[in-house]
Design a binder for these strands. Structure first.
Lengths: 243, 243
DNA sequence: AATCAATGGACCATTTATGGACCATATGAC
DNA sequence: GTCATATGGTCCATAAATGGTCCATTGATT
């Protein structure tokens, strides 16, 4: 039946909900909304109430609210999209929110570049025979993906997870589990098909094999270098797909 | 969470025109369901209520709920199976073991050596003026420890935390918060007095100052190198106290 | 008097939500 | 096995919501 047609006669009842004294100017509205955004009243990617509702709430005209929103948009706290609404762009406290939702693919790869090369060094130092066997298994599985982006992606995750296990460092393993979780759950995986062409997969697999050999040979410098190249390449592929 | 509308005295005027006084949009529905999944309202492998029921609960059309569910499925929190329902795919991290208890100081420093040097590189790339100011403040505080190991230790934690914030990378920040938490809570802190002699503290502070200057100068290579030396020294000091 | 912000109203283009209907599959009762 | 029911998957035409824009008017400050 009839849906939200809110702003009808209730405006009369809302006389008290706001001070609504003459402090109705765009600046105060902007600062109040800014505070609410930073305080997390509206979380990252949440939609703010429609301009018409905000106008009612602040006892101001819609144009005034629009001026306030424009300020917040300039400050990068908001983005506004015609027909859709105003959305929070400010990424507040990662502690309470879903970290996978807050992390962009570029930020993810930057973290991986920071962690994994030296993780390979630790892996060389601490991997035992059983670790190497598991790594070899993972390597074969990811090489058997036949160019399927989805299968490769899962196998790749498992392979890198193996590397983390090779370090035999519980904290490192804990950290990488979470990195991998973010990687697995990041919504931008949509681009995978564009990035993971059969040729790209072949290249990645070659690097995987090289990395495995370096670890078996206990060549820490080579392993670090290979993984660094591997991730830098992934970063370049990520950037190259859009602009 | 974000219920801007307050349902106060609307009862009289609102005979029937509003089944649900919320701004119904697929994004908020998705956000609410995601929160419930992560909070464990629906556990791993649980089935969510049927779409038609959810639609009723949220006062939205089924299509709107479906849009929200589609989003959750993209981020791998759900799987939907025709004829059966929508099932939670997210495994809440059991967090059974306290990672701080499982980590030795050597393992901790190994992880820090892996993470922090490249973290400094990201900091150089992304720090803004406000970040640098905060870092400068932290630097002064840690330099004012007067050789007190405990005070230095806390200030040092804050300084390195500042560095993590300089990266402006939410995932990196999230990870380093946990590294720092482990560092703070690890019980092996007993050796601190043996390691953190006034002379050692002085040396560390010199490196801190150098690191800060390198970041201000946007010299990524120097910053990386300094932090690497800094942590390698800490590692050596840690090992040197025992053998 | 001039200026400037705010107001209130109207209209536009875009996007989303709605309310059906029908289908295919899965599950359980018989 | 058969059937009824429940569930997700799909499609469609319509309605509603939303930000973007313009404009004449008002009120306060300068």
């Amino acid at each position: 039946m009839n849906r939200p047609r809110l702003h009808t006669a209730e405006s009369l009842a809302e006389v008290e909900s706001r001070p609504a004294a003459r402090s109705v100017n765009s600046a105060t509205i902007a600062s109040e909304l800014r505070r609410e955004i930073i305080d997390g009243v509206y979380a990252y990617r949440d939609r703010l109430p429609p301009e018409r509702l905000l106008a009612e709430r602040f006892g101001a005209a819609r144009g005034t609210v629009r001026a306030a929103l424009a300020r917040l948009e300039e400050t990068k706290l908001l983005t506004r999209e015609p027909g859709r609404g105003a959305f929070v762009r400010y990424r507040g406290h990662a502690e309470q929110d879903d970290i996978a939702e807050l992390t962009s693919p570029l930020e993810l790869i930057d973290v991986r570049i920071a962690v994994e090369p030296d993780m390979a060094r630790l892996a060389v130092r601490h991997a035992n025979a059983q670790d190497l066997r598991r790594m070899s298994d993972a390597l074969e599985r990811v090489e058997d993906c036949n160019g399927d982006a989805e299968v490769f992606s899962r196998g790749d995750e498992a392979f890198h997870m193996c590397l983390a296990e090779c370090t035999r460092n519980p904290l490192m393993l804990w950290l990488y589990r979470h990195i991998n979780e973010v990687r697995h759950r990041t919504q931008w995986n949509i681009r995978k098909d564009k990035i993971l062409t059969p040729q790209a997969i072949e290249g990645y697999n070659r690097q995987h094999r090289d990395l495995y050999n370096a670890i078996v040979a206990r060549d820490a410098e080579a392993a670090t270098q290979i993984l660094n190249d591997h991730l830098k390449q992934a970063r370049a592929d990520l950037l190259g797909v859009h602009p």
